[in-house]
Amino acid sequence: MPATATGVFHRSYTSELRLRHTRAEKTRLVLVALLVLAMPFLVSPYWLTIVNQIGIAIVGAIGLNILVGYTGQISLGQGGFLAVGAYTSAILHMRADLPVPVSIALAVLTTAVIGAFFGIPALRLKGLYLAIATLASQEIILFTVRTWDAVTGGTDAISLPRLEMAGFVFTDDFHWYWIIAGFAVLAVITGRNLFRTGLGRSFMAVRDQDIAASAMGIDVTKTKVLAFAISSAYAGLAGALTAHYTGIVTWERFTLDVSVLYLAIIIVGGLGSIAGSVYGAIFMITLPALITRFGQDIQSAWSEAAAKVPAVQVIVFGLVIVLFLIFEPRGLNRIWQRMKDYIRFSPFRY
């Protein structure tokens, strides 16, 4: 495509269905793939932990974006669904002695079923009311985890042994990077392709105008329940990965704050965009890590200020959400697109 083109034109349906149209997009894909492969060799061990956390957050954020960004169903229950994934996988592995891949797969399925169940209020409720209903789901799931001693061990943490597969022990972040990066890439590819299918498009139709969607023959009930199930499946995967990666499962990791963090990720990244989920995860996980790092750096020089750093972290977290919503509600993804357009059309404004 010539560099002077001011838009993307298609001459056949196959070209329109392609995920990437321009040479620049293909080049960027190759660069990103190279970066993913080179990442563990480039960063220090401290930052590799952060990178792994980002990878898990990408999986969870794509799941939440499918529900909130693409289907328009607000959910404050992501933390609860992560907990279901983490606990199911941990319990199946420890008590039923299932191998880890099987326990993770079963955790994904279980979370999908439980997510669909807690999605039932969505059949009658919209917007604010649904947000409050999912808030209640979050509290109910965590309460169940805390009090069902016989199965979840109650408020005590479950510790998991190091992951071992076919005689190979995954000891450190470097080994785990390949597992997590693999799942993150898989999540991106499946997420991106979901919205090229009829099901994905029916999600967006329900978001944009549910009455029109049902007039076009989309079963709104089925679509909403499926959106909750698919979204929760991703959450279950992210939860199960967290469980085996950190080796410890406790309810404190899945509180309402986590649900809020995931919502913040997709809002900062961009609602209704898979790439946005990735940008948001990178941004919202890196930012607190940078602040913590800054606190450690000034610890010796100015310890009173360093003691305030955790509080500053909470303030900055809130501030970022508020500023993005006021100034760029469509998130980092939109900023990136505007930058691309600016360069592409330069020296003209449009």
Binding site: V68, I74, G127, L128, A131, V260, L263, A264, I267, L271, K308, P310, A311, V312, Q313, V314, I315, V316, F317, G318, L319, V320, I321, V322, L325, I326, P329
Partner: peptide
């Protein structure tokens, strides 16, 4: 600034606000 925005944006802006207030108290 949020007048006329989606429910999710309004909900999240108050959640962001709560985080700022909580962080301020902690500070």
């Amino acid at each position: 600034p949020m007048i006329g925005e989606d429910a999710i944006a309004v909900i999240m802006v108050t959640i962001g606000l709560s985080s700022m207030l909580g962080g301020g108290v902690q500070f």
